[in-house]
């Protein structure tokens, strides 16, 4: 198996993982994370395509590389905008419904363990 095959399969799998998460998870923030995973899979696919086009002493076709760099920045901006919308929505609804509270034990450290 060559580099291209291994990471080509990996890219396809990551992209479809992102798709699954984006479809099924009802929580908006998880949708955003899944979207990032999906995007990362697509970028990896570009990378594999570029790797196949290695020539003229360059290990990876520079055009797909440039496209991916542009794509990463666009995906980051999208994430930032989506999160800003989400935080604003949370602010406005939390203001309207003060009854929503954190459940006990919903905690980062426990989550990490």
């Amino acid at each position: 198996m060559s580099t291209v095959t291994v990471f080509g399969l990996c890219a396809a799998a990551v992209a479809s993982l992102g798709l699954y998460g984006l479809i099924t998870d009802p929580r908006p923030l998880r949708k955003i994370i899944a979207f990032n995973l999906l995007g990362s899979g697509v970028f990896l696919l570009f990378g594999v395509v570029g790797r196949r086009g290695a020539a003229a002493g360059i290990g990876n076709d520079p055009v797909p590389q440039a496209l991916v760099i542009t794509g990463i920045v666009v995906a980051f901006s999208a994430t930032a905008l989506a999160i800003a919308l989400l935080l604003r929505l949370f602010q406005t609804t939390a203001f309207l419904e003060p009854s929503i509270r954190a459940a006990p034990g919903d905690d980062p450290d426990r989550a990490a363990s």
Binding site: P64, A82, L85
Partner: peptide, 25 residues
């Protein structure tokens, strides 16, 4: 409405981008 619009539009454009990757390949 804006969040839903943004997320669905992003899903659409990622699929479009996936297509361009294949075409470039």
């Amino acid at each position: 409405a804006a969040i839903r619009y943004l997320l669905f539009a992003l899903l659409g454009s990622v699929l479009y981008l996936l297509g361009t990757a294949l075409l470039y390949g």
